[in-house]
């Protein structure tokens, strides 16, 4: 079934700095299962974009195929979306970004979409440091094809049908770190307080921002024995700290408590204020971040929060030296060489 929400705007609705109400960032009503983690993430995206006061039409949302990849229809109705091909969202996002470097790119994928069929593209989009936010709604299974184990399912995790997963799970966070991603975070669909500031920080980051979001599949993978169920994740989450996102427009008055706080400046001037729980960890230091990942793995904990950020990150456009003006806005005047040039080409071939 498909239906659109009536475009009703209550006069008393609060609005953000640009005058948009939260409704302007919403999408059509979700058709996912009630209680699906993916819906909570959609909600967090709406909230984050609203709070950040981004113009909705300056965002492009792209996805692959899967329940997770359906979600772009359920947020940001005023943004162009592209529900593309299974595992190939990164290439479509790369092309879109090359065409217009001025939009915000929000990519949504699933664990099947990114860790199996799309692994190649996932790896290479990181390598190119494409300026985008890349979300994996990670439920350890293929929701849309009815619950088969995915490559991120943990070894020994029990499926709803009772079978045990025999294979090692792929940790996308560890992989993204290994590949040199310039922003790496993990969160849980059930933890809005952590997720919303992380989303905002990811969108303010220049370069590739990856967020692995554990997002339980209530229909196929929320049983006892599954390591991606609501209960299991709540019990095993280890948070690196709490964080506030402070947009660059707001004056920054932070309570520094030496040792457990760190302020990180983002590309657009916004600040991330981290209240660290673990004093050894420094999110701007790759080594320390990697160490932290390994320690939690050993303890059997799911590490969440901002794990690593490279504040100096650039992006693909800087690497290949494209003009500041979006390529899709160039016209005949800028693109078409002259007739004299063509005559020279002809002459060169005589």
């Amino acid at each position: 079934m498909s239906y659109i929400k009536p475009p009703f705007r209550h006069p008393d609705l609060p609005s953000n700095e640009l005058g948009y109400s939260k409704k302007d960032y919403e999408g059509t009503i979700s058709t996912l299962c009630a209680g699906c983690g993916h819906d909570s993430i959609s909600g967090a995206i709406v909230q984050a974009c609203y709070e950040m006061s981004v113009e909705p039409h300056r965002i492009a949302k792209l996805s692959g195929i899967g329940c997770s990849s359906k979600t772009p229809a359920y947020f940001l109705n005023n943004s162009h979306g592209f529900n593309s091909v299974h595992g190939r969202m990164p290439s479509v996002a790369t092309g879109a970004n090359l065409a217009n470097r001025d939009l915000l790119y929000l990519g949504v994928s699933g664990d099947g979409d990114s860790a199996s069929i799309g692994m190649g593209q996932f790896v290479h989009v990181i390598r190119r440091n494409l300026n985008m936010t890349y979300i994996v709604m990670n439920n350890g299974c293929y929701g849309l094809t009815k619950g088969q184990d995915s490559a991120t399912a943990d070894e020994g995790s029990l499926s709803k049908g009772g079978s045990t997963n025999l294979f090692q799970g792929i940790d996308l966070v560890g992989l993204a770190m290994e590949l040199g991603a310039s922003f790496v975070a993990r969160s849980f669909s059930g933890d809005k307080n952590q997720l919303i500031p992380l989303l905002k920080a990811a969108m303010s980051h220049k370069g590739f921002a990856f967020i692995d979001i554990i997002s339980p599949c209530v229909t196929f993978n929320n049983n006892v024995g599954s390591t991606k169920s609501y209960d299991y994740v709540r019990d095993h989450m280890e948070t690196l700290g709490t964080l506030d996102f402070v947009p660059y427009k707001n004056e920054i008055t932070l309570d520094y408590q030496a040792g457990d706080s760190k302020a990180v400046q983002l590309h657009d001037g916004s600040m991330l204020n981290l209240h660290k729980l673990n004093l050894e960890w420094d999110p701007t230091n790759r080594k320390s971040a990697l160490e932290q990942i390994n320690q939690s793995k050993d303890k059997g904990e799911i590490l969440t929060g901002l794990i690593y950020i490279d504040q100096e990150s650039t992006d693909l456009h800087s690497l290949i030296k494209t003009t500041k003006q979006p390529l899709n806005s160039l016209t005949e005047k800028e693109l078409m060489p002259s007739l004299t040039d063509l005559e020279l080409i002809n002459e060169d071939h005589r």
């Binding site: 091909v85 290439s91 479509v92 092309g95 970004n97 939009l103 593209q121 899709n328």
Partner: peptide, 17 residues
């Protein structure tokens, strides 16, 4: 696969690719 994906993404977003 990725090459054509990029081309489709760029064309979708208004560039000639």
């Amino acid at each position: 696969l990725s090459a054509i994906g990029m081309v489709i993404g760029a064309n979708w977003n208004g560039a000639r690719a």
